[in-house]
Simulated scan of single mutants.
Amino acid sequence: MNAGQTCVAPDYLLTTPAVARRLEPLLATAIREFYGADPAASDSYGRIVNDAAFFRLVGLVPAGIGSDAATRYIAPTVLTGVSLDDPVMQGEIFGPILPIVEVSGLDEALRVIRSGPAPLALYAFTSSARARRRIITGTTSGAVAFGVPSAHLSVAGLPFGGVGRSGMGAYHGERGLLTFSHEKAVLAKPLRPDTLRIAYPPFTPRKDAIVRKVLGRLR
């Protein structure tokens, strides 16, 4: 979607080695189905937004990956054998590059997710109710979606927003009104009688007892 230039684009993919071997050719097949044998010739495939972004992305992929500086084209790219220390894993990609990071299983996947900043969105492909519960409770993210990436933006009843470095607050529908509106606090106290004198110095044991009693009722 938009050559990966969306804030909710998958930034990397975690999976076991066995699933990675099965997934890699399927991703290549899907790319061909979407954009044909030459994505550069497809009207459905986007270009990188500016030169700075283009050259940053070119620096993240191996030499020989299809690209054209004149049109800011970078081919949809799947990277295999990626480690967490590789440059492509050091920041948000925001481009048509998908690194596959192999993990031993769900436990390690959760540790990897928790080791970095909370993502704006987290996508998991599993039909296991137990795995879904562990993902929801064992990670922090702006949103979690199962079986589909990015689609939660189009569901009107769901709040959209991040947590931590991915942003705070949420909008869409009623939540948007609350987030982007300021609820102004207004308090009016009669000038006479001055019922707050009990809180003024000098502080006496009697005043202290009355204030403690009032505060106790408020609790």
Score class of each variant (00 low, 15 high):
A18I: 04
S181M: 14
I97A: 00
A37C: 10
I136D: 02
A37R: 08
P62E: 07
P99L: 11
A151K: 00
R165Y: 03
G91W: 06
G138C: 05
G142W: 13
R130C: 00
T80H: 05
P87I: 15
L26D: 10
E174W: 15
L120H: 09
R32F: 12
T195K: 14
G167R: 15
E92T: 00
T6P: 05
S166W: 12
V8S: 01
L60G: 04
S67I: 02
A53S: 13
V163W: 12
E183D: 12
T29G: 00
G116R: 14
G95D: 03
L177P: 01
G105P: 05
I48L: 05
M1F: 11
E174M: 14
F55W: 04
T179Y: 00
F54W: 04
L13S: 07
V211T: 08
L98Y: 08
R22H: 14
F94I: 04
V214F: 14
T15Q: 05
L122S: 08
G46A: 14
G64C: 08
G105V: 00
D68S: 01
A20L: 00
A156D: 06
A118H: 10
A9E: 03
G173R: 11
V101Y: 00
A28N: 05
T126M: 10
A185H: 07
I65P: 01
P201E: 02
I136V: 08
H152Y: 11
A41I: 06
S141N: 02
R197F: 07
L177K: 02
G147L: 06
G59Y: 04
A53N: 08
V155Y: 02
G169P: 08
L84N: 15
A209T: 09
G95R: 04
P119R: 00
A28K: 02
F146T: 03
D85Q: 02
I65W: 07
P119G: 03
I136A: 12
V112E: 15
G138D: 15
R197S: 09
L120T: 03
L57P: 14
R132D: 11
T126G: 15
E183C: 07
I198P: 14
F146V: 01
L178T: 10
A20T: 11
R56I: 06
L153E: 05
G176D: 14
F34M: 09
K213E: 03
L215Q: 02
R114D: 06
T77W: 15
V186Y: 09
Q90N: 13
L57I: 08
P205D: 06
G81D: 09
L178N: 02
P39S: 06
D68F: 03
I100V: 15
A129P: 03
T71E: 03
P119L: 07
S44W: 03
L23S: 13
F55H: 12
A70P: 09
L14V: 14
Y12N: 01
A52L: 10
P193S: 01
E92Y: 12
